[in-house]
Design a protein around this nucleic acid. Sequence first.
DNA 1: ACCGCTCTTCACGCGATCTTGACGCGGCGG
DNA 2: CCGCCGCGTCAAGATCGCGTGAAGAGCGGT
Lengths: 228, 228
Amino acid sequence: MTAILVVDDEPQLRKALRVNLQARGFEVLEAADGETALHLAAASRPDLALVDLGLPGISGLDVIAGIRGWSDLPIIVLSVRGAEQDKVDALDAGADDYVTKPFGMGELLARVRAALRRRGADADEPVIRTAAFEIDLAQHRATVGDDEVHLTPTEWALVTMLLRHPGRLVTQRHLLHEVWGPGFDHETNYLRVHLANVRRKLEPIPSQPRYFITEPGMGYRFEPGSEG
Amino acid sequence: MTAILVVDDEPQLRKALRVNLQARGFEVLEAADGETALHLAAASRPDLALVDLGLPGISGLDVIAGIRGWSDLPIIVLSVRGAEQDKVDALDAGADDYVTKPFGMGELLARVRAALRRRGADADEPVIRTAAFEIDLAQHRATVGDDEVHLTPTEWALVTMLLRHPGRLVTQRHLLHEVWGPGFDHETNYLRVHLANVRRKLEPIPSQPRYFITEPGMGYRFEPGSEG
DNA sequence: ACCGCTCTTCACGCGATCTTGACGCGGCGG
DNA sequence: CCGCCGCGTCAAGATCGCGTGAAGAGCGGT
């Protein structure tokens, strides 16, 4: 059975989540603070975690970082409206997605399903295949159909950064920091231009991206084709 | 008999691998740290290596680089989930494939068989043939048409380095590190000059290289002629 | 000491790549 | 309904990296 770890200090919200998730056939583990969250995650190995950022004691951010130290399980962050910086920090720390409180249960469940689906589809091979293109990480090669496509160093860095975290929302800051180094954290211009080039080379319809998705205001996400 | 070198510091995992591999008729060599791994690899010449990245002392990455200095045996990396950057680094260092821990034994065995099969296909002959030239790695001889061509030591080191990884991009840093040693990681000048010499001697049209391809900003790649 | 081979070092020209700025569009809030 | 912000697009200029030729240094053999 699929187990989901719920980390939130409000008993009401925990209860609401428990009821809804169990109704969908998920097993639910609950933690009211960061410490028990980390212990539970290590002991029970859940398949996904929902983490509230506003926790007493150990912050939600530390919970994310603590889990990411040893596991790649999908993490969805719950945060209050307006706390944009918190969301970005959480994503930078390795969260996969976020939901803004208050949220509809339907939206949350959709994101949970999406995160689980992506993770399952995450092919663990050194070559990533989609319906449109194929990227061989070991050989450093990209092909579209039968034609080899040349990616510039910057483009390659961007693509691998996104491919390395299938389905995960990668923040602009994170991308800029990894590809251009420190000091470029706000040059979102670069991302727009180079992402456009990547799409022109890899996307079937560059103006309607299907694999390299923009999350306005936050960052970008590689969406592996649902292979089924 | 086919010998497999297992490099991991966890005795449990080593035992599990040993039992399963021996059951399939493989001979198993074990190393708990990087040093013994390198010694064993040099002394016993295994046919394949399974290397854990999280080793005490010498890192798994250095083990890979150390082996790649003189051998082309297939290397499969074992890495924990979430250590995405490590995997990419390992591939850059010359690993052939990776498996994420925890893994099913069936999957691992499949990858071992695949790696051995791939290798058997191309590395049977120590002599590499293309339409333009022929290189005998064992005898240290290169011929173009019927004429023997003399390669200087540096050129030979570069050529073998590239030939050992057909089709794969070898980074500038990797080449410089293996041919010139540490401390030359940024002397890309050397590569340009010596690659030019290699092309002058081996390529049919040196100014339009077909076999020794430049990947601007990243490195070089040996492109074997389509052998069909 | 001389010679030949090899490697290092440098400067130049050229093309690929990156940066930069301007523009239009669409969504969102006022 | 209007204005603002973020994104995609495009084109120009600046920059970087590569290939090339050639000169000088190091080294071993004769």
